[in-house]
Design a protein around this nucleic acid. Structure first.
Length: 518
RNA sequence: GCCCCCAUAGUCUAGCGGCCCAGGACGUCACCCUUUCAAGGUGAAGAUCGCGGGUUCGAAUCCCGCUGGGGGUACCA
């Protein structure tokens, strides 16, 4: 599609009709958030930027399972589930099919072997019979002599007879690509401009393995070409092998796609983000109570920016503004605190209460705070949960916080709590007791739905008892909830309800008596 | 070791030759609001734009070198 990239390249060439991008993970485990971010960039590019620039755009999911030894059962399902949870959909893929099916590399094996054979016949590749042991020895030798490592091209110049003899003898072999020995290979990168490699520093990498499966290098090039991929997006770890890919395209006479190596996500201590920094797989975040909205918002902020000022983006906002060529090429450190802040922002201020309430339901059920039921408004306690969500949402930072925060409203019996909590600082136990008894006596005639009325009543009771309002309120709060922190007292009392409140006041009074007798 | 990429506050970023002795956000600190805890509001500290050379009337912005960080160096992706 392009041979060179100018200083500030456009992501989508004028003459292109359809943008086709793909995410091609290998099913070897759970989806890393770096991968999830890459998928988001792809979707935004294909479904947002492409239409904005008058093109059609397709995002394809393709599974690269050519390393048969590392396959992990269930990875593909897990991956698809995670992406759909994020709201990222693909137009073509293993489960949804499409005009370029199959979308699983192991099912496309024939193409790769054919291409590899063609390259051997062309003189662009050769059969290599070297044993792993010999390769190991060569590598060590080169290392020791401080030479560039890599294969010594031992089999590159075997004669046709020698090759035939080895084949007849049944020796196994791989196919290696013949890199040019001099000159340079240019890798045009959308984010970085031209990356230039001196060919004499490059090596002849394996493209077809002994087991007949291609390596990544052959497989991507063939698949990307066959699937008419226009933009190759992937992690930066592929930059060093990109010259091989460029040479493969050339040897096969195929147009080059546009390469866009995306930036890496670093762990706070430098280096790749790893498990020890509190989870790196999408599942970890999902289980920790993060919202897809917050994750997508954070991914966008990490390495990209609309104007340097806007912080909160919905996925729709991103579709309207994201540009692939504006992604920064520099790696960025994963900042858990900023993600947490975004998650909280979304929960506290940007999600509709009804929406939040539905998302909270499964967590409440999981913790047994409410009974099992549907995860939507048909759950018998939805109305109650909706009301509590409105009351408590500003205190929820993660969905996982909800069960604990809501439990004292939803459960009839409070778990036992420390009697000392009933007695605020600078207040005598006897005073706290008097406050609770006075309040319990008054409660039957109060209308808790009248918040202002409750407040007025309670303030005058405090005055009569010679207590500051706060000193009077705290014992009541603790009696009602079993803890010192809650939403506004009057709303809290109303939500707890008069009957349960009477009962809980009784328990608290008992506790204070016991405290006094000690 | 060799090859490659990257470089604005602790972190994410704005900046594309004069509007910048550098703007926004997270985090930190202070104050305000207040019945607790959040949420919210206001403000502060924090960057000699990694260092050194150029180019230019003028550079965070362009060029070169260095340093630092990162990636790759497999019949793994």
């Amino acid at each position: 599609m392009t041979d060179t990239v100018s200083e500030r390249p456009k992501g989508i060439p004028e003459d292109l009709k359809e943008v086709r991008v793909r995410f091609a993970p290998s099913p070897t485990g759970s989806l890393h958030i770096g991968g999830a971010r890459l998928v988001m960039y792809n979707v935004l590019f294909a479904h947002g930027q492409a239409p904005r620039e008058g093109k059609t755009g397709k995002f394809i999911l393709r599974i690269e399972d050519t390393d048969r030894k590392r396959l992990i059962e269930g990875s593909v399902e897990n991956l698809m589930d995670g992406l759909r949870w994020l709201g990222l959909e693909w137009d073509e893929g293993p489960d949804v099919g499409g005009p370029y099916a199959p979308y699983v590399q192991s099912e496309r094996k024939h193409s790769y072997a054919e291409v590899a054979e063609r390259l051997v016949e062309n003189g662009h590749a050769y059969r290599c019979f070297c044993t792993p042991e010999r390769l190991q020895a060569v590598r060590e030798e080169k290392q020791k002599n401080k030479l560039p490592p890599g294969y010594d091209r031992h089999c590159r110049n075997l004669s046709a007879e020698e090759v035939q003899a080895k084949l007849d003898a049944g020796e196994t072999h791989v196919i290696r690509f013949k890199m040019p020995l001099d000159g340079e290979t240019v890798v045009p990168d959308l984010l970085r401009g031209n990356i230039v490699y001196q060919n004499d520093t490059l090596e002849d990498l394996v493209i077809l393995k002994t087991d007949g499966y291609p390596t990544y290098h052959l497989a991507v090039v063939v698949d990307d070409h066959e699937m008419d991929i226009t933009h190759v997006t992937r992690g930066p770890e592929w930059i060093p092998t990109a010259p091989l890919h460029v040479q493969l395209y050339k040897a096969l006479g195929w147009d080059l796609p546009i390469f866009a190596h995306m930036p890496l996500i670093l762990s706070p201590n430098g280096g790749k983000l790893s498990k020890r920094h509190g989870g790196v797989s999408l599942n970890d975040f999902r289980e920790a109570g993060y919202l897809p909205e917050a994750l997508l918002n954070y991914f966008a902020l990490l390495g990209w920016s609309l104007d340097g000022k806007t912080e909160i983006y919905s996925f729709d906002d991103l579709l309207k503004h994201f540009r692939l060529e504006n992604v920064s090429p520099s790696p960025s450190t994963f900042d858990r605190q900023k993600l947490d802040w975004l998650n909280q922002q979304w929960i506290n201020h940007h999600l509709a209460v009804e929406d939040l309430a539905k998302r909270v339901l499964p967590w409440l059920m999981k913790d047994g705070v409410i009974e099992q039921g549907p995860e939507d408004e048909t759950h018998p306690r939805y109305a109650e949960v909706l009301k509590l969500t409105g009351l408590l949402k500003d205190r929820i930072h993660f969905l996982t916080d909800a069960p604990d925060l809501m439990s004292y409203f939803l459960v009839d019996e409070l778990p036992d709590y420390d009697s000392a909590l009933l007695v605020p600082k600078k207040v005598e136990p006897a005073q706290a007791l008097a406050a609770l008894e006075a309040f319990a006596a008054k409660l039957p005639e109060m209308d808790l739905a009248d918040l202002d009325g409750t407040e007025a009543t309670m303030r005058s009771m405090a005055e009569e008892l010679g207590m500051k309002p706060g000193q009077f309120f705290m014992p009541v709060r603790v009696a009602a909830t079993g803890r010192t922190q809650s939403p506004g007292l009057f709303e809290t009392l109303e939500a707890v309800g008069k009957d349960r409140l009477m009962e809980r006041l009784g328990i608290a009074v008992g506790k204070l008596h016991a405290l006094a007798n000690n």
